[in-house]
């Protein structure tokens, strides 16, 4: 069995996505969670480019990828800002410490 180039990229996408999700489930530090989200996003961006390559619409794919990067950056910045505030208030970034609202 031979792996074509799109297959390889798809494997990379899956790997990135899998790592990202696994990290979201297991990691408890807020900053690292932001990083995990970034890994997830990188996987998606790679997939966008692959999709553009496969459907011969690479220009459109690029513009989509750029938009996603912008949108994602905003989310990451907001996440960081909230994490900073949390650190100030709670002196901890552990998700199990920021679990007062429950039940």
């Amino acid at each position: 069995m031979t792996l074509t180039f799109p297959d390889l990229v798809l494997i990379a996408v899956m790997a990135l996505f899998g790592i990202g999700l696994y990290a979201l489930l297991t990691i408890r530090n807020l900053i690292r969670i932001i990083v995990a989200l970034q890994v997830l996003v990188k996987g998606v961006i790679l997939l966008i480019i692959l999709a553009g390559y496969l459907t011969n619409q690479i220009g459109m794919a690029q513009s989509m990828a750029l938009t996603v990067i912008v949108a994602d950056t905003i989310v990451a910045v907001l996440g960081m800002a909230l994490a900073v505030q949390i650190m100030r208030k709670k002196k901890s970034l552990d998700t199990s410490d920021i679990a007062e609202l429950k039940r």
Partner: peptide, 30 residues
């Protein structure tokens, strides 16, 4: 603190959700 906590949970869960959506959209596009 509770408002911040709610914001953080909302943001991260939603962000993960939108990534799933985006993944789906790209699958459709592909």
């Amino acid at each position: 603190a509770p408002a911040l906590e709610a914001g953080v949970k909302y943001l991260f869960q939603s962000a993960a959700g939108t990534m799933l959506v985006l993944f789906g959209i790209i699958l459709v596009f592909m």
